[in-house]
Nucleic acid binder design. Structure first.
Length: 281
DNA sequence: AACACTGCCAACCGCGGAGCA
DNA sequence: TTGCTCCGCGGTTGGCAGTGT
């Protein structure tokens, strides 16, 4: 019992010809995208549906940019990759006209090597360097342990869950002071893994070179925000930092800040001495 | 000129999720 | 709930062009 092949045996493989491109373009122009299996059949293309879809989305679709990745785009790719990891489709959404395949190729052929050669532009490397520099100092204080391999983008559902628990604790009077909205356990231990059902699964967490906790929405999908609101309404944030916005609920605070990802998440929650701070802007 | 090597990138492949009957 | 189809994603492959010997 193997997986059923998605395509008939008599199909073309390899590079698309100009005629095939024209046929596919005309068909999609007349009938629209979707139902790619039918596209392949009805258009008379000896290609599998997946191949048609990929050809259209990566090359034929109007608005696709080809060639030279600009410096700005490269910078954005680096920053987004740092935050999102190999989630090319997500990165591509932030770069109009670029496809996930193109960005993936560009990363694998250019940036991954470049970042190896020029570690100074790698925030991870900076972070690790800083970790080394601060090693002694950190051992004196209440340490926020982060394993060397830890600064990878992680799904935040667990962290939010922990955060919520922290707020629960807060309601029992564990606030540390004006600036402290609660304790947060070591991310290396508590953020890792995602056993929770992920109502927050499309948020991401990262730790940058300044030891800041970054939280991002993963997608423009706004339905996630109400979920967050619903949960946070049960956990009013009281006594946030004087640097914090005037809003008093976690809901307001987060929906204000994580609405979109137009810029790279300079929304920051700061961990220090085991406490979570709202860094303010 | 011929061959080997390397890098790039278009295309393929398999997996998993969503939607539907 | 189950099984099926379709779609989307990310990893990988293979062909081609450029470069070196």
């Amino acid at each position: 019992m193997g997986r059923r092949p998605c395509c008939p045996k008599e199909i073309n493989k390899g590079a698309w010809s100009r005629e095939e491109d024209e046929t596919l373009s005309k068909y999609v122009a007349n009938h629209g995208e979707g139902k790619w299996q039918k596209v392949a059949q009805n258009a008379g293309l000896k290609r599998c549906g997946k191949s048609c879809r990929q050809r259209w989305l990566n090359y034929l679709k109007p608005g696709i940019k080809r060639g030279d990745i600009s410096v700005d785009e490269e910078d954005m790719i680096i920053r987004l990759h740092r935050l999102l990891g190999n989630r090319w489709a997500l990165i591509a959404k932030r770069l109009p006209g670029r496809t996930d395949n193109e960005i993936k190729n560009y990363w694998n052929t250019n940036l991954s090597k470049k970042l190896q050669k020029e570690p100074t532009i790698s925030a991870y490397a900076s972070y690790l360097q800083q970790k080394c520099d601060n090693e002694e100092e950190k051992s004196k204080s209440k340490e926020m342990h982060v394993a060397p391999e830890a600064p990878r983008p992680r799904r935040v559902n667990k962290a939010i869950h922990q955060y919520t628990k922290v707020l629960d604790n807060d309601s029992r009077g564990s606030y540390g002071g004006d600036h402290r909205c609660g304790t947060i356990p070591s991310p290396s231990i508590k953020v890792e893994g995602s056993s929770d059902e992920a109502c927050f699964s499309d948020f991401l967490i990262d730790i940058d070179d300044q030891n800041q906790l970054l939280i991002a929405d993963d997608d423009s999908n706004s339905k996630l925000v109400p979920q967050m609101e619903e949960m946070s309404h049960n956990n009013k944030v009281m006594g946030l930092s004087t640097n914090s916005p005037s809003t008093s609920s976690l809901s307001d605070l987060l929906s204000d800040k994580f609405d979109s990802l137009d810029t790279l998440l300079d929304v920051e929650l700061k961990i220090e001495d085991g406490f979570l701070f709202w860094a303010g802007k």
